[in-house]
Nucleic acid binder design. Structure first.
Lengths: 341, 341
DNA sequence: TTGTATGCGTTATCAG
DNA sequence: CTGATAACGCATACAA
């Protein structure tokens, strides 16, 4: 196994190049403040020794980590992937590193992960949605960690948010559904408990029904986790209702994909016999058949703007502004008029 | 804005509860070593002050971070999502935290991220595939950071790997394709440059052709990035070859989904006119139509076993064993006999 | 059982 | 332009 020689430190580099640790540190952090000849010598030593600064020590000394934390509900499907990838790319460009954790939609896990990230010296935090206990926000306040909410938009809430109006977006889609003539509406929603995006999407549908003179109580609603399988099961249940819904609005594309699969299995043709809609416009939406009529969310744009805003907050250049991202309906074919009675 | 009161430290807790910092530290790390009455008092103070240990300081003092780093090529599609989620869950159960970065399939970015994670004191690293410069491994060796490769299996390589034989798995699928009667075979592969999984999958096909007396040079091969769009483009190109391939084997399900979409667009029916196969068996595979005949990879099992092995390595309980995960063919309908000439 | 004292690897302040 | 040196917050060996 060879001798257990451990990683070189600033000190090692200092000795190797015959200067003080202070000078080595300067060479690395503000090269212009050290004369060229010594700088070259030092950097050479850094290279040959394979020196990497010890991050923990840097954080302790500088009280700054250039790290941003993000906690998303799940990595297991594509809902957050694209936006987060862009968020990370943008952070990297500005010299920040992203740490991601997923909470499995569990508030307790999320709370623990927030603590972990704060303890790790995260300079700022990205959270999904506003729905969490007040003490979590108090904790963040206390630790002076700037936070930003994404995938949701509500300018009246704290922390500031970069996202879209889930209720309005889903409401628009529902309006489109109703305008097409549907009267028996069903919805497969993600669990609304602790999930303000899911809640808002349901509200959007209810409100649209109300505005169009439909009885909002008549909405056949099933809540479930965001899995294809669950979407399929829920669709199956909905199809045995009477009167049978003529449209199944899904809380997101993943659930809609499950619904489509089940429809296929049951020999129910979409959209001829039943219409199905999604939400998010992830890759899936374009690939299933029929392709999904859904709400397009510009995830990349959201990720990019969130990164910029959060960095501005971390660097004290912004108090935190909320930014609204525009969504738009995408008609692809899974929504049509209801069949004649 | 209130006074800029900063986070409470061990010292604050010590004062508040009238003991030394050592005792507070013990209360937190080895509670059994401190008498109950004082422990209660201390923990109470911890609670009321909202104390969270400073991670950087812990790492420095203990030279241990309980952190595992993982660098995946991309978060932008589902290939790594499921396995990684399970990897993380397993780590958490054992008290470790996972830090994930994605390299965008860029070796330079990956190298930088490895340095970052090591500097952050990662106790161990999960890497995807073996293909990277020797100096990267030398660096890890030098810093004594145990590493494990996943999504690939080769017991003769270092670092040890937990994964599956990409060549063998794809070879098996190719055998099945050939047995079905296909002679004009095309393949849409992920870029093989710096990607040993993609390379191995191509090799698997070539070898199977060879073993069955087909000219391996006749394989119509297109390499591209892993995007649905790219799969569609490649499929389009392949369909204008003559003789036209009767089967398009794709390097993964994402590319296959793109191929299917394009086939639909071109009015080519699958599998009647052309067969299409995938690899990975991610959710997508079941949802497209026709559902994909593909290679099922037990991602969760792989993630779990990788986590266990890496933890064992980190804790000095294992020198690092390679573990082979079994894949299996899944016949779903996108592969059939070639059409009669 | 508890307290004291030291070191971990940087950064940053202050002299020289 | 460069060099001492004091923090930073915690864990731990050693003493009491």
């Amino acid at each position: 196994m060879g001798k257990t020689r451990s990683a070189p430190t600033l000190n090692d580099v200092a000795k190797a190049s015959g200067v003080s640790t202070a000078t080595v540190s300067r060479c690395l952090n503000s090269p212009e403040r050290v004369i060229e000849t010594t700088r070259k010598r030092v950097l050479q030593a850094v290279k040959t020794l394979g020196y990497t600064p010890n991050f923990a020590a840097q954080v302790m000394a500088a009280n700054r980590s250039f790290t941003i934390g993000a906690i998303i509900p799940t990595m297991d499907n594509a809902i957050f992937a694209r936006g987060l990838q862009e968020f990370q790319d943008q952070l990297r460009e500005s010299g920040y590193t992203l740490l991601v954790s997923s909470s499995a939609y569990d508030p307790e896990v999320e709370r623990e992960q927030i603590r972990t990230l704060v303890a790790r010296g995260a300079d700022g935090l990205l959270l999904i949605g506003h729905a969490r206990d007040a003490d979590v926000y108090a904790y963040l306040e206390r630790h002076q960690v700037p936070s930003l909410v994404a995938w949701s938009y509500d300018p009246h809430m704290h922390p500031p948010s970069v996202g879209f109006g889930n209720a309005a977006a889903m409401g628009e889609l529902a309006q489109s559904v109703i305008s097409a003539g549907h009267r028996h509406i069903a919805m497969i929603s993600g669990n609304t408990q602790g999930n303000d995006r899911a809640q808002a999407r349901v509200e959007g549908v209810l409100r649209a029904m109300d505005e169009n003179g439909l009885d909002a109580n008549s909405l056949a609603l099933i809540e479930t986790t965001y899995e294809i399988e669950k979407g399929a099961e829920a669709f199956d249940q909905l199809m045995s209702l009477s009167p049978r819904p003529t449209v199944v609005m899904c809380g997101n594309d993943v659930l809609a994909a499950g619904a489509l699969r089940q429809a296929d299995l049951m020999g129910i043709s979409v959209p001829e016999q039943v219409s199905v809609t999604g939400f998010d416009d992830i890759e899936l939406a374009e690939v299933v058949s029929p392709a999904l009529t859904t709400v397009h969310v510009p995830h990349r744009e959201m990720g990019r703007k969130a990164a910029r805003e959060l960095i501005a907050m971390v660097e004290g250049k912004s108090e935190g502004r909320s930014i609204c991202i525009d969504t738009r309906l995408v008609n692809r074919g899974s929504l049509a008029k209801p069949p004649r009675q």
